[in-house]
């Protein structure tokens, strides 16, 4: 255990936690926006997989990670339009259609990977972009300012998304249609158009999250996300639909995962015990939900489709 409490290992663990948090933070930010407008998207995992494969395959073929990221976001938007059609237009049950999207993404990416790629060739990653000056601060620089650009982007989006939701007219509309769509409708807010918009943004975030994961690992494989999309959804509840709290949850998950990994690498815990430790984030989430569920309430119109009467 003592070898864990050396400065360099602790620094590496915290930096790793921030890095690991990035994909599900991105996905969770998008999901938070979607849920604030009253739409639950359980398909995040599937869209993340599709985004991850799109980014991987594009980067593999073109050699450009930027192109990979762009394609992943674009495919995310397409998936968003599909999901918006399903839930906003067709009023499909949101929990179930999300599972459909998840299964589709899981199978489809596996299929494409086996058929189009096969040999799991690595792609060039995004590469670290240390922030000048700040990254030179001892320890703190390594923890916070020596990451790849997607990590900065994800954390930069937290205040941006907070601002969008809380300080803009669009955010006001989003919050209104998530609580009382009928009232918002009377005030002239187009409920379905706004929801379509939030869904598309949320799915772009999920696609980007997948890209962040694939580019971080530099590889794709069947079920690469391994449940991260579902963790992202949990984080939204965990953070009680507030961007800063969602970020805190993501960081907590990231640091816990990173710690388990470090302990494993340093031989502090055996393989079997690390499986037990890996249960921690899930149990933690349940406990937090038990504590907060009664106190904070979900957007009142969550999962409820809107249809103007008459």
């Amino acid at each position: 255990m003592s070898e864990f409490f050396t400065v360099s290992v602790l620094v590496a663990t915290l930096a790793g936690g921030i890095r690991l948090a990035t994909p599900f933070l991105l996905a969770a930010l998008g999901e938070t926006l979607g849920q604030r407008s009253g739409v639950l998207n359980l398909g995040v995992e599937g869209v993340m997989l599709i985004g991850a494969f799109a980014a991987y395959y594009t980067a593999l073929e073109t050699g450009s990670t930027v192109a990979g990221i762009a394609v992943a976001i674009g495919i995310g938007a397409v998936m968003g339009l599909i999901y918006a059609f399903l839930t906003v237009v067709m009023h499909a049950e949101q929990g179930i259609s999300g599972i459909g999207i998840f299964l589709f993404g899981l199978g489809f990416t596996d299929l494409l990977f086996q058929k189009q790629v096969g040999t799991p060739l690595p792609i060039p990653g995004v590469g670290k972009a240390p922030i000048p000056i700040l990254s030179d601060i001892p320890h703190l620089g390594e923890i916070f300012f020596d990451h790849n650009p997607l990590v900065y982007l994800a954390f930069l989006l937290v205040p941006i998304m907070w601002f969008v939701v809380n300080k803009t007219t669009f955010g006001l509309n989003v919050r209104a249609i998530g609580q009382t769509p009928e009232a918002a409708d009377t005030l002239g807010v187009s409920v379905n158009l706004t929801r379509t918009f939030t869904i598309v943004i949320a799915n772009c975030f999920a696609g980007l999250a997948g890209a962040a994961l694939a580019l971080e690992v530099g590889i794709f494989q069947q079920n690469l996300t391994a449940g991260q999309g579902f963790i992202a959804i949990a984080l939204v509840y965990f953070g009680a639909w507030r961007m800063p709290w969602v970020m805190s949850g993501a960081l907590l998950f990231g640091v816990v995962s990173s710690t388990v990994l470090q302990w494993k690498t340093l031989g502090i815990v055996s393989g079997p015990s690390s499986s037990l430790l890996a249960m921690a984030p899930a149990i933690l989430t349940i406990l937090v939900l038990v504590l907060v569920s009664r106190r904070v309430s979900a957007p009142a119109a969550l999962t409820r489709p809107f249809d103007r009467a008459g």
Binding site: A92, F104, D110
Partner: peptide, 22 residues
Amino acid sequence: VPAALIVALNGVVVVFVVASFR
């Protein structure tokens, strides 16, 4: 054709069936 097609197809079936309820 990898059998993963079936998983994807199941997803599509869910989506279409759920959407057809309305």
